[in-house]
Amino acid sequence: MTSIGTGYDLANSIFSPDGRNFQVEYAVKAVENGGTSVGIRCKDGVVLAVEKVITSKLLKPGANKRIATVDKNLGVVYSGMVPDGHHFVDRARDEARGWRETFKTPISTSDLASRMGGYLQAYTLYQSVRPFGITAIIGGFDSELETPVDGEVGSGPSVGAGGKVEGKHGGPGLYMIEPSGMYWGYYGAATGKGRQAAKAELEKLNLSENKLDLMQGIKEAARIIYVAQQDNKDKEFELEMSWISGADGPTKGRHMEVPKDLLEAAERLAKKAISEDDEEDEEDDDEKNDDKMEE
């Protein structure tokens, strides 16, 4: 970052001579210090998880939720500045409401990601605002059923032309949006402090094969948060998780908190997996030492 201190990093919407927008890069820095967030797109739904660092003993346990619902079938989790995340969620809810007003149907995951990508990008364009200090993960399940439009009464004509195109509709969706407004669709997404470790773990799951189901997804998400947290073990944290299935799955198409018993079971497994890893590491170390001694 040779251009730091040259003045190009002071204002938003200013490019430095080497073509960078420093304000956006600083926003990314804010994200990189936040608690880790993870999203996994399973074959039958989506799991979202976040590591909430406990900053004070006086905080009410289990309160201060970080995963938010948008409409009924979408969930948002984010790493970075929490009040900015709140702003993001408010806007996402407004977009979902506006979509319903216009189209009389819920917004799809990809459309919400597109709208929010546009919104974040606008905050990189003007001197009068600063970019969002968050990277957000949007998970959703677009209904695969033939759903009525809002306010529909009756069933309409029982014969005659229909409007629906044959084929498969709906399904799970997962998107991650960065402070620049850039977004991509993901099989597994991670952001925040522990994102490197989390990404490495996500890659091992071979999510693109579309074999992992929600129940496994919950266990993996919990484990990944615990693995990603290994680097600052001294900090206490709370695990928060949510999930979304299709209409015939456990959440009936809605975005919901993972039930307490499932969450606790997943946490127990995660802790166990981590302590086993530690032991293996220690064993490895021992072996190496042995090797050395033998040399």
């Binding site: 004070s56 003993k57 006086l58 905080l59 009410k60 309160a63 201060n64 500045m81 929490v82 009040p83 709140h86």
Partner: peptide, 25 residues
């Protein structure tokens, strides 16, 4: 002032509030 709001079991803010927080903890 940042807009951060958190639900607490007990809390103290203002001058020298650290002592009060210690008591509360």
């Amino acid at each position: 002032p940042s807009g951060l709001t958190q639900e607490m079991l007990a809390c103290a803010i203002g001058a020298r509030s650290q002592m009060a927080r210690t008591y509360l903890e």
